[in-house]
Write a protein that binds this DNA or RNA. Sequence first.
DNA 1: AAAAACTTTTGACCTATATCAAAAAATCAC
DNA 2: GTGATTTTTTGATATAGGTCAAAAGTTTTT
Lengths: 192, 192
Amino acid sequence: MTTEPKDNIFQHFEKYIHLSDTLKYELTNRVSIVNFKKGELVHDADKICTKSYFIQKGLIRTYFIKDGKEISEYFSSEEEWVNSPRSFRERQLDIYYIDAIENTVAFCLHVNDLVYLFDHFPEMERYARLSMGTVFGHFMDRITSLRFTTAKEKYEHFCETYQGIYHRIPLGMVASYLGISQETLSRIRAEK
Amino acid sequence: MTTEPKDNIFQHFEKYIHLSDTLKYELTNRVSIVNFKKGELVHDADKICTKSYFIQKGLIRTYFIKDGKEISEYFSSEEEWVNSPRSFRERQLDIYYIDAIENTVAFCLHVNDLVYLFDHFPEMERYARLSMGTVFGHFMDRITSLRFTTAKEKYEHFCETYQGIYHRIPLGMVASYLGISQETLSRIRAEK
DNA sequence: AAAAACTTTTGACCTATATCAAAAAATCAC
DNA sequence: GTGATTTTTTGATATAGGTCAAAAGTTTTT
């Protein structure tokens, strides 16, 4: 009995809902596998985001450009969905670019297919509600961390949140994610 | 033809989903009206949050205590839901207190009733997914605002986000919401 | 394997904002 | 309406972390 690659994404759904055979079938038909090479653009801010990616292996960055500089908004890795949220949800342009920090393998789901699934499988609505709840909590923690901590504490919070991933992300990207300068982050790292 | 007080909350749902008569009936039976006086505690961090409030009129603050000081997490007003998110979702304790900045009239929905509605009306799941999406966007904007702006810009962003509400909130609460000191905020306001 | 192109570190200096303290103003309670 | 409490403003001082510049280290390209 070999392990199908899609078991991965099924297991993720099953953390929140029961997957019927019909739903599994529909998912399998609608999801494809894509590869991104390190540095490759996954989504371009000049386009409307119509695809959502569930990362099987690898590391992805969502960023935007401010004053000519790339500012990391967040990082996503194994077992997480990535897209340009507002663009994907509201079918309009938004500021975010997405690229691969490492070679990445992901499942790809088109927004139209997702709409089909929402329309025909109420449990998908529930899945979305519940999984969004989880992300919500992280956002609130991050907001607190950004407001009331020194640069050092922000970095420590980052290391906790991105347990086992933080050392795979270049320093400059981490600094912009935290809203501190590269130099400051470099100094913080040095004193450890 | 008089206007039922519950029209208010129905209209809100109808921004996202169609409300069937049965669902309206179930909602009406499960929702009650509550009043809070200015300064009154709506939710205590020592308890698990089992109720969610939809504000009909008034202004509510969600805050937590850090080093003996009250830190405002966010403010909620007309047409918005308030609860202690993680506590309500996961039925466990969390750090947030909630109180009324102004006399407030709200609809109250118990978590058990909400679960009932989710279980019997798939459109409620959709409502939750869609309305959470909206809040998501605000969170992302706030995170950006917190990282890359001066105290003054943070305050300006706050005034935009809380259009027509910001002048109802005491300065000290706004300062802690923004993660800047009262004194700095006072100086920013002075130079206008 | 050398050159080119990035990324990170180190150093010097400067500014926005925190902190502490006290006065002024506003709000609340009797 | 007057005193008490709370909130906001103003002033003086200190500091974390920003910016600019250049050196050191690393990775990529040919």
